[in-house]
Write a protein that binds this DNA or RNA. Structure first.
Lengths: 110, 110
DNA sequence: ACTATACATGCGCATATACGCATATGCTTG
DNA sequence: CAAGCATATGCGTATATGCGCATGTATAGT
């Protein structure tokens, strides 16, 4: 098939939803907190400073989007990053933003 | 500096906004239409099937986010992709989604 | 100067969603 | 079975934003 075939409406919707899931600071914070391994909800609440209910909801959103995986163990529920592409995504965006900000800063210095 | 230093609140906000800009199907459609070179607003309106006002607004959003660049030539305004990381971003998300969907489909077949 | 063309923008509405609060559910222990 | 802890969820509210519609602004041609 053609490498550059335009995406269908449904595909575009899916891609957009994917990006939307990553468009909340609190969810990015959660992802960041999971960068070096799985954590329980309680740990994530402590790490992010959010309320328990809100954190739980965000974790649900991320899990439904297959970004996170859920593992239940006794009373606790452990979440972890399920989609490794997340790492690259964050790297890319961070790199792009750094470049953008550096250039903005340079506009004053030069 | 540490490779894994957690991002500041401001940085997280910026990253989130970046993803948010990419979380609308119509904007993705515009980006897709610009994949092989710059186009005028009129061409983009025709290519996407959106209304002129709406398209213009989305183009503004994308330009303010430094995703697109704007070039005025006479009556027309030409937009083009300014941030090359967009290509990688879309590739990554599409690849991840394909994998996800394939696995879902496989869950029925197997 | 007037008109036409291409693009941008102000306004209002409808919808989506993040958050706080309270409460429900599930599991473990005594 | 009762009680307690960890997590999930229903509900209301405030805010954000995509869209349609109409209108404003800039540039080119006569």
């Amino acid at each position: 098939m053609a490498r550059k075939a335009p995406l269908s409406d449904d595909a575009l919707e899916l891609v957009a939803r994917r990006f939307a899931v990553l468009s909340e600071p609190m969810r990015l914070r959660l992802i960041q907190a999971l960068f070096d391994g799985e954590r329980s909800v309680g740990e994530l609440v402590a790490a992010t400073g959010g309320t328990q209910g809100n954190i739980s909801r965000h974790l649900q959103t991320l899990t439904q989007a297959h970004v996170l995986a859920r593992r239940k163990e006794g009373l606790q529920v452990y979440y972890s990053i399920a989609d490794p592409s997340i790492f690259r995504l964050c790297e890319l965006v961070c790199g792009s933003l750094e470049k953008s900000l550096t250039r903005q800063a340079g506009a004053f210095g030069a």
